[in-house]
């Protein structure tokens, strides 16, 4: 049902590095799960609306005021992988040769 290339493409979309061995395992197991969920195709859903969310609430507003305390902010920042003072550090998004 899935080819090795399909699995590699999905892994790329998922931002997951997987090994050759894993690729083969996922090809088989994802294939069997997909085969199972394909039974949905036998149901006629013409004009059936989608149930996007479980509770029908719309436009839930609250005042746009900072509610986080500074300690909480500091605790969250402490967890970041690399920082310089109050600045969060990440690798460059674009490289020169792209």
């Amino acid at each position: 049902m899935f080819t090795t290339d399909d699995v590699k493409k999905i892994a790329k979309l998922s931002r997951l590095h997987i090994t050759e061995e894993e690729t083969e395992q996922y090809r088989v197991k994802l294939g069997s799960i997909l085969e199972y969920v394909n039974q949905l195709q036998e149901v006629d859903t013409t004009n059936v609306p989608e149930l996007q969310h479980a509770v029908m609430v719309e436009n839930v507003f609250r005042a746009d005021e900072p509610s986080i305390d500074l300690d909480e902010r500091a605790r969250a920042m402490e967890m970041f992988s690399a920082r310089k003072g109050d600045l969060l550090e990440v690798q460059a998004v674009f490289s020169k040769d792209e």
Partner: peptide
């Protein structure tokens, strides 16, 4: 990976949208 597949271009209607209709 399953979720990336069911949401990906070309498969969204057949899987995700279909599943939400069946949820209804």
């Amino acid at each position: 990976m399953l979720g990336s597949y069911t949401l990906s271009a070309g498969y969204y209607d057949a899987y995700y949208k279909k599943a939400l209709q069946i949820r209804t």
